[in-house]
Nucleic acid binder design. Structure first.
Lengths: 189, 189, 189, 189
DNA sequence: CATGAATGAGAATTCATTCAT
DNA sequence: GATGAATGAATTCTCATTCAT
């Protein structure tokens, strides 16, 4: 009997993953405010199981997006190394961030809502994405490619807001406006 | 008894106005998602009266902001006439729009949420503010002060999104980011 | 159209009374911890109606028993005037109190549970029954018919506890034990 | 491998003891209505183990208090032998019983609630404590120190109820009221 | 035997909406 | 027209209990 315990752990892990996948899907369809029960049904589990794995909604939301947040943050140094100029890296990173937000229906709005329950996610982004963005901004500033007075947090918040899509204002529009915003950040070069 | 009907009409008008004032106040305090009952109580009327005057929440929201929307739209030609350059007029008008959005707690988020019930308000803004903004943009374009490809609707939507405030991202930040966005619109002059 | 408003008020009052009656019945059958929904169903109203009339469970419990509490309190001065001795009045009043408690299944236990939500009822009893009981105790003390150191609150609490009935310990037992307790209060006369 | 079965039995016994200790602790902190899971966690076992050993909550409650009940019962003949008078023995025994009940947060209320699931515990007390108490009462009666008509069961039930403490009615009050009750039992001596 | 993940019934509470007066 | 009592669907969250490993 090799790894008799592992079987149960693996099953639990699969359940957890299923819940995460279901939540991600439901969030895309209904937004992060979707009823807990819908997510449980989508995952094919009882609500109790969902609560066992994610005691609060914020825990669930955070878990759903944590991996992608980390990926996005890790992208910054790589782009900085690959790109011709720091500003090019910033632009590309912003595109990736927009893509992340746009595909997460309602996340931007949820983050901007000031919902106290989403403090965790807010904190997570502050702790991982803001430093990543700050690295890029610092490089831009050092290269003289940045208007003074732009902070990483504010810029990300602005990009986040610009990524709140809807009818008549889709992903392409969000990307275009973010590009315009970044052009404004670059100043007269 | 001269004009007995007129008296009743006047009373009805006063009721309607009271509801609008109450709704405006409650929206500022609680956001546009505030419970219907709170608004009715603030206005000192029954919920039935509120529903009679504004069958849907969107009707109420629209009515509340219609006057201010009209005012904002009317501002555009005036600023265009007064200002040195079309772009200056655009900048000032954007400031007025931001102020309008920022003081209406939650309106920006509501507009950006894609809530189908707010279609009316959306339409209203399309029909009044977009043309006003387009006038300014056209003037800017004619003066060579605008990057090509910026539409009035998209720009307004972007400004609206940038005006979604919260903790750590307040009115000053929104104004600053809108200014940066407009700088990006102006292009390299 | 005499009293056109009164009709609605009367209807509302009837609804309220119906809820109170239903709650009283359910409390007897299931105790004061009975589910809100059961009470609403028994009353033939929606849960919303119940919440409208009694925002918290304690409000409902209090309302159910307020009349009887008042009646019980009003009994004290009457018995004092009618009876041969203060102690006789105290004994009779205790019997009335026991009857009140015994017929309210679970009330004694609920009061004794320290449930914070029942603070209202606790307060009500403190404010009305304790003074009534204190009047009797004072009269007994003045007549030399009371051991020193017995407070109204503690005595009532004791009577309340002794009135928690169950299988094999019914109303007759409660009354007997209360009588014994009072005999102990009287001391060696 | 001598006595391989005994080892397993010993381990099972230790598990059972651990659960009992945990349950006793949790009952003191949260009352007998404490969630099953809390007890299992405190004991460091899975809930399944708890259910295997104690299929119903009543089984657990009974087992937790059985030892102390036996101890309390065994106290009666000892006190009778040691004390000057049977009534003194009864008084001391009652004090011990009150202490037992008061330190078991919520046990008195649970016993008095008529909860059918606690039938076992009820039965246990009937079978062990009632005879012990009856011995004392018989001795008192024989010594002429007892009002007629007091049964052991009813007296114990009364003492149990008087021991239901809460805010504003603590252990000292319970003890005092029990003393008063016993004084009433003694009659005019 | 022990485990603890999974289940889902049950309970509280909120609010948009209707409609008789 | 105005009223607000009544309704009940919707949602969150908690735990007792089961059962595959």
């Amino acid at each position: 009997m090799p790894e008799p315990v592992g079987v149960r752990q693996a099953q639990a892990q699969r359940t957890r993953s299923g819940v995460l996948a279901a939540a991600a899907a439901v969030f895309v369809e209904q937004g992060v405010q979707a009823p807990v029960r819908d997510i449980a049904e989508r995952a094919g589990v009882g609500v109790g199981t969902l609560y066992r794995n994610f005691p609060t909604r914020a825990d669930l939301v955070t878990a759903v997006y944590r991996h992608q947040i980390d990926t996005c943050a890790a992208l910054a140094p790589r782009l900085l190394a690959e790109s011709d100029s720091p500003f090019t890296a910033l632009t590309r990173w912003a595109d990736a961030f927009v893509e992340f937000l746009v595909t997460k229906h309602g996340l931007g709005a949820a983050l901007g809502s000031g919902d106290p329950g989403l403090e965790n996610l807010h904190t997570l982004m502050l702790d991982t994405l803001v430093p990543a963005c700050a690295t890029l901004l610092d490089a831009c500033a050092a290269a003289g490619e940045l208007e003074p007075g732009i902070t990483a947090y504010t810029l990300m918040r602005a990009i986040g807001n610009l990524s709140i899509t809807g009818p008549d204002y889709g992903r392409a529009d969000a990307e275009r406006m973010v590009a315009v915003l970044l052009a404004g950040c670059r100043g007269r070069t």
